[in-house]
Design a protein around this nucleic acid. Sequence first.
RNA 1: UGACUCAUGGUGUAACGGUAGCACAACUGUUUUUGGUGCAGUUUGUCAAGGUUCGAAUCCUUGUGAGUCAACCA
Length: 554
Amino acid sequence: MSEHMESLNFIEEIIEQDLKSGKYAEIITRFPPEPNGYLHIGHASSICLNFGLTKKFPGHTNLRFDDTNPSTEETEYVDSIKEDIRWLGFEWKQELYASDYFGQLYDFATILIKKGLAYVDDSSSEEIAIQKGTPTTIGTNSPCRNRSIEENVDLFSRMKNGEFADGSKTLRAKIDMAHTNMLMRDPILYRIKKAPHHRSGNKWCIYPMYDFAHGQSDSIEQITHSICTMEFIPHRDFYDWAIEKLEIYPSHQYEFARRNVNYTVTSKRKLLQLVQEKHVESWDDPRMPTLSGMRRRGYPAIAIRNFCERIGIGKRENLVDIGLLEFFVREDLNKTTSRVMAVLDPIQLSITNYPSEQTELLPIENNPEDETSGERQVPFSNKLWIEREDFKEEMEKKWFRLAPGAMVRLKGAYIVKCTDFKKDAQGNILEIICEYIPESKSGNDTSGIQVKGTIHWVSQTNAAVAEVRLYDRLFQVENPMSEEGDFLDYINPNSLQIISKAYIEPSLSHAKTGQAFQFIRKGYFVLDKNSTSDNLIFNRTVTLKDNWAKVQGK
RNA sequence: UGACUCAUGGUGUAACGGUAGCACAACUGUUUUUGGUGCAGUUUGUCAAGGUUCGAAUCCUUGUGAGUCAACCA
């Protein structure tokens, strides 16, 4: 009933007005990646924006690969991009490629030449750079600027036919070498590149530049709202110029500020470097900010979508706290994952008054947040593994775990009282000795004893073994790109910690790749894709919030 | 010595000339067989100076600060 006016971001406001005014009956947006790398969290923001817009308003979104540079693009990237978008939960109306428009783009270029608005230039890249001038001094005209239309038409077709070497000629727009916008100083439209293209093969040896492909592709597809990041603002002048001169469908470009996340980098070049120089295992290394990395890390797609929606879009510089993403990850996983017990840093706990030959199965709820999740049977015996950090040699104030004389509940089992412990000559604790309270059985406790602490455990005779990989942030500083020197200097040397032998409860030996769990008190974990039944591998997705750690830190 | 963007708590984002709100983070308390979760609450903000107005985060002026632009990359 109470229809609250939902607040719109600035692009949604523009669209709402365009729809209301009748400028468009429906809108068309596009997500236009270049297939030269894997998608990352920054792309997720753009994907959620573009696809989200046409969920909210009538219209549709296309996927268009901006593949105009054959030397950097590969089909492997095309495939990963499609997989990542689908995983995020979006489906495009049409799958399109700028390379499909090479013929049309060539015709567009010829139109400009015939209108006297483009010319073939023999200048080298160095000469062109000099002609450009600087932001504060005007440029100079190329000596080729006044070639006749006939000569330009002839030269351009010979460029296409492969008569000239790479770099020997370009096609340039004839605009204004004194323009305050550097990009309007006769920008290059076409270059010669005798390289095979991932889709068109050797059919072409001239390729359009971004500026002479993107806006034109938008126009061909009748994109109504072409959304890109702020660094393309200076390109909008040319975007509009070309549409006007070509007299084609007037798409419009809108810009928002790219989303940056702290403790990571999201430049494709830097990410590629991290992979190539083996600072990480692969593009989908769980420490990477790529969508495939986050998927392997165990981040649910819904968490990424909620994150993107929450941070919204704007036009100002930003550095979003990765903690917000982690919040959404925990929020979803808390509701959906089964609780299980795993001991990462084991120490033996022996119960002296429990029959040594006995094993009993105890029912433990799978997820207290989900009444329908049921329960499972967990074996219990007199020799258990517990977490080394759950024991202290001497009792302290506010310590709710084990210490000599202290009592805790073993999750889902009994209350135990620590009676003794054993140390070796070096002072390492070898074993904790306890007595259990038979009347304190979980769910049937008649002991009347109240304890503050509950700890997790695994029965030694029934335990399975797994490798557990603990991940931390990839960089030690919030913004590696703004620090002095090389960003690689700021890599966190402890971003990956491998525990080769953790003890896990037997139910976990049937886990499936990608299946997520909460290891009680330790965090959320997911079975890695390289896991086998002989060698189980769990990735820690994210820790639980830890108030105890905060108290200790004080 | 240019053009173009931008400026709201620690972070991100609302407000469309009329009560500065939301989320995260932080901090209290409470619940809890996870020091998790849930619940209740607290703290913290309009870059500055002028101006217009009954009234300014919002409009105007000036200043300050940050970012972008000179790839045959996208």
